[in-house]
């Protein structure tokens, strides 16, 4: 049977789950509009979109940083991966400028319109093509969509354990193939361990992302970044882009304005105003 497979596939089958000493981390990032610069036009209630730059999803910068720190501690390499329109290549180069070693760019017409399911499928196919790895890092969610669902989706597609909302990587044993982390949950921090390879989504508190370096910028300038489409990742077309997306956006609108106007509390003295306000709040039964 093996003869029927391409060289790529053989390499892939033998590469997975091999014991390795050097780390290979893959970071999935997303190019998002820089919402700190998005301004809202109060007259028309639309986004003022001129000069809106795209940036690496801020949550993903923590994922990049954590991958780089593990690489520095254990040796190895970090591959950064994104799916997006042609202009998103800029974000991959910036990740390289931060210290990522390799970059893969998923960009093709057939990927357009992907929802979280189709995105997770596409990323997972690409990761299969990349080959052996120890950890996949994602940010906890994207700044534009805010869903936080792609990371779990990728883990599920690849059938590897997922550790979401990771606050701290406590221990990683590349030879024993295990990892222990702290996850940030509503009630506190859960300490949990699992086997490698695993997918981690990280929260903002995990680290302070580094700035890109000039050395990194010089590397980014010269790095050739492969662009993969559906064929390169051997994807089934019915699972890609708009067609592969179970969800469908039917309406986009600006949120309704809060009803009623603010009631300004005036008074002769600060005490009088505080008194009046306290009575209102007690009357509203919110205290």
């Amino acid at each position: 049977m093996l003869t029927a497979l391409g060289g790529d596939q053989i390499a892939r089958m033998s590469a997975v789950h091999v014991r390795r000493k050097n780390l290979h981390a893959i970071v999935c990032i997303k190019s998002v509009p820089d919402t700190t610069e998005v301004r809202f036009n109060p007259e028309t209630n639309t986004l003022m979109r001129d000069e809106v730059e795209s940036i690496i999803n801020p949550f993903d910068t923590y994922a990049i940083e954590e991958a780089l720190r593990l690489k520095e501690a254990h040796g190895g390499k970090v591959t950064v991966l994104t799916m997006g329109p042609p202009k998103a290549e800029k974000e991959l180069r910036e990740a390289v400028a931060m210290g990522c070693d390799e970059a893969i760019f998923l960009s093709a017409r057939e990927f357009a319109g992907s929802d979280t399911w189709a995105t997770a499928y596409t990323l997972a196919q690409a990761i299969r093509r990349i080959g052996a790895y120890d950890i996949i890092f994602c940010g906890k969610q994207a700044m534009d969509g805010d869903t936080g669902q792609v990371g779990p989706g990728v883990a599920n597609q690849l059938e590897i354990p997922q550790l979401t909302y990771v606050f701290k990587v406590r221990e990683i044993d590349l030879e024993g193939r295990s990892i222990q982390v702290e996850r940030l949950l509503e009630e506190g921090r859960e300490v949990v361990e699992t086997r490698l390879p695993a997918l981690l989504t990280v929260v903002k508190d995990i680290n302070q992302p580094r700035y890109p370096t000039f050395r990194g910028i010089r590397t980014a300038r010269r790095l050739e970044i492969p662009v993969w489409g559906a064929a390169e990742i051997e994807a089934a077309p019915q699972y890609l882009g708009l067609d592969g997306s179970p969800t469908q956006v039917i309406r986009v609108f600006t949120p309704p304005k809060r009803e009623g106007r603010v009631e300004m509390i005036d008074g002769d003295s600060v005490d009088a105003m505080a008194d009046a306000l306290a009575d209102r709040l007690l009357g509203d039964k919110v205290v």
Partner: peptide, 14 residues
Amino acid sequence: TPEHEMVRKMVRDF
């Protein structure tokens, strides 16, 4: 150039 843009973003964030 893209490098100029990266320098700008780096120094701005810094």
